[in-house]
Write a protein that binds this DNA or RNA. Structure first.
Lengths: 110, 110
DNA sequence: AATCTTTATCGTAATATTGCAATATTAAAA
DNA sequence: TTTTAATATTGCAATATTACGATAAAGATT
């Protein structure tokens, strides 16, 4: 196979999995961290920063974008990529949910 | 290719990517949520809960385990799987770091 | 010991991801 | 308008992931 049976899971579960998957590559983690660190956010800078060829970086950017973790706006003939905060919030909320669940669970088991 | 060039990234970046990847499948998100919800944490229950065959679930459990997100302890001839809280904390810390970076960045750009 | 229950592993097919060279696209600059 | 610069897309090879039937392993039960 290789295709995950996403139709059997809840929308929320799929959403979290999609976000996690988008972060599931060191290059994409590096891109997020780089976008946080620098004052500019032009794609070319990212290409120079990462030890990967330009098409590969472009592909990673596209995946982050399609997951909604970043957004890109055209800035002349360059592109300015920025972090999409609201999407990160979804992720953060999941962890809060997990943390709350853990606290509750500790009263009962394990 | 298909193999990620993890040697080019920092240990932290690889760590976050590994954790995110482990969560990057709806079945594994569902397992985590199930472990939070129920009072017991027996593998067989997870198999019954998920719409996947037993070997597939076992494989997903192994991935969560090897990423350190859960741990399993033998309980008679069954196995009790539990969430590994300290690993989730690493993840949470990353999001705090990102959130802080976002706040700082907003003073400067985008 | 023979059997049952529970979980893991093996083998394998289908599909997805990663990476990059080559090329296309698009807007600025000359 | 030709050229240059910045990104994206295409095509393809290498590898990884997902899923499951068959089977193994290991402890419980009879």
């Amino acid at each position: 196979m290789g295709a995950s049976k996403s139709e059997h899971f809840t929308e929320k579960q799929n959403q979290i999995a999609t976000l996690a998957k988008a972060l599931g590559h060191p290059a994409r983690v590096a891109i997020i961290e780089y976008l946080l660190k620098v004052d500019t956010c032009i794609c070319g800078d990212i290409v120079n920063e990462l030890p990967l060829a330009q098409p590969t970086v472009s592909q990673h950017l596209r995946e982050l974008k399609s997951a909604g973790l970043i957004k890109g706006s055209i800035e002349g003939n360059a592109i300015c990529y920025c972090i999409e905060e609201s999407t990160l919030d979804v992720f953060k909320q999941f962890f809060n949910h997990v943390e709350f669940g853990l606290d509750e669970k500790k009263k009962r088991c394990c």
